[in-house]
C-alpha cells in the first residue's frame, strides 16, 4: 500500500468528515440548549439541498451561470429553506412540548422526519414535470481534479473543506464575539441563570435551530456537488452519521461536533479503504465501513463516556 493511496484515503476521510461535522453542529447546538436530540435534523439537511436545487432549477438564468457564480445563490436558497423549516419545526412542533416528558418531543422529531421526507417525495416538482421520488441530478463542477503528487483533490472536495472551515470560523466568532452567541452559550451552560441576565431562552433556542440549519444547508450543497445527486431520503443516513459524530465529539460541544465528524470520516475511509486494498480482507472493505465507524464510537464511549471533547457534567434535569 503506497503512501499516495493512504494520503488519498486521508483526503477522502477529511472531506467526508467535514461534511458530517457541518451537520453534527446542528445536533449538538440544539442538544446543548434544550437537551433534545432533533432527529428531524437530517431532513433539514435534505431540505437545504432541495432549496439550493430549487434556485438552480426554477430561477431563470441561474442554470446558465457558471457554477461558481450560481453557488452563492444556491447556498442562499438552501439556507433560507433549511432555516425556515427548522425554525418552523421548533415553533410548531417542539415549543408546545417544552414542558412535556422528554420522550414526547423525541417521538415528535421522528414523526417530523418522516413527514418531511414524504412531503418532498410527493410534492417536489422540477421544471418539466420531474419529481423527487427518485434521486434527482444536482449540478456539479466540471473540470479536472487538482493533482497533488498523485493525491487527487476534487473541486467539490476543495469547496467542502473551505466551506467547513469558513463556517466553523464564523461559528466560533459568532459564539464568542457576539451578544447572541454569548447568550446562547450562557443558555446552554445554565438556562435559569441566563434568564436572570435578561436572556429570553426561547429566542436563543430559535437561534440554535437556525444556525444549525444554516450549516446543514451548506453541508447539503457540498453533498450535491460531490455526488451529483440529492434525494428525499438522503437525510436519514447523513443524519445518523452526523448524530454519531456529535456523540463521538461530545454532544453539546460545537468544536467536538466538527472533531467527531472528521474522526468518523477518517475512520470510515481508512478502515474500509485499507481493508479493501488487500485481497484477503477486501470483503470487509466498503460493506463494513459502517461497522468500523460504530466500533470506533463504542470504543470511544467506553473510554470516554462524555465523548472526545465533552464535559463530564451532572445531568441537569
Amino acid at each position: 500500500m503506497s503512501v499516495t493511496v493512504l494520503l488519498q484515503l486521508v483526503e477522502n476521510g477529511l472531506v467526508l468528515g467535514a461534511m458530517y461535522g457541518l451537520i453534527a453542529v446542528g445536533y449538538t447546538m440544539v442538544y446543548g440548549t434544550i437537551q433534545l436530540i432533533n432527529f428531524a435534523h437530517g431532513e433539514i439537511f435534505m431540505l437545504g439541498g432541495f432549496g439550493a436545487l430549487t434556485v438552480y432549477a426554477w430561477i431563470p438564468g441561474v442554470a446558465h451561470l457558471p457554477l461558481f457564480a450560481a453557488l452563492p445563490l444556491m447556498l442562499l436558497g438552501g439556507v433560507v429553506v433549511a432555516v425556515a423549516a427548522a425554525v418552523g419545526a421548533e415553533r410548531l412542533a417542539y415549543r408546545p412540548l417544552r414542558t412535556a416528558p422528554r420522550l414526547a418531543p423525541l417521538i415528535t422529531a421522528i414523526g417530523l422526519s418522516l413527514a418531511l421526507q414524504q412531503v418532498v417525495s410527493l410534492w417536489y416538482r422540477l421544471p418539466g414535470g420531474g419529481n423527487a421520488k427518485a434521486p434527482v441530478a444536482f449540478p456539479s463542477f466540471g473540470g479536472k481534479a487538482f493533482d497533488l503528487g498523485g493525491v487527487l483533490v476534487q473541486r467539490a472536495d476543495l469547496f467542502t473543506v473551505i466551506a467547513a472551515a469558513v463556517c466553523m470560523a464564523g461559528l466560533a466568532w459568532f459564539v464568542a464575539r457576539t451578544r447572541s452567541g454569548r447568550a446562547m452559550q450562557a443558555t446552554a451552560q445554565d438556562p435559569d441563570t441566563a434568564r436572570l441576565m435578561g436572556i429570553d431562552p426561547d429566542r436563543m433556542i430559535v437561534v440554535a435551530f437556525a444556525v444549525g440549519a444554516a450549516l446543514a444547508a451548506v453541508a447539503a450543497l457540498t453533498q450535491g456537488l460531490r455526488y451529483g445527486q440529492i434525494s428525499f431520503d438522503m437525510g436519514f443516513v447523513a443524519g445518523l452519521k452526523a448524530f454519531t459524530a456529535a456523540v463521538l465529539g461530545g454532544i453539546g460541544n460545537v468544536r467536538g461536533a466538527m472533531l467527531g465528524g472528521i474522526v468518523l470520516g477518517l475512520a470510515e475511509e481508512l478502515s474500509s479503504g485499507i481493508l479493501a486494498h488487500f485481497r484477503d480482507t477486501a470483503q470487509y472493505g466498503q460493506a463494513w465501513a459502517d461497522v468500523w465507524a460504530f466500533v470506533l464510537l463504542i470504543l470511544v464511549l467506553l473510554l470516554r463516556p462524555q465523548g472526545l471533547l465533552g464535559e463530564r457534567v451532572a445531568d441537569r434535569a
Partner: peptide
Amino acid sequence: TDYSSVISA
C-alpha cells in the same frame, strides 16, 4: 453514494 474507499482500491 460515497465510493471513495472502493475507488482507491
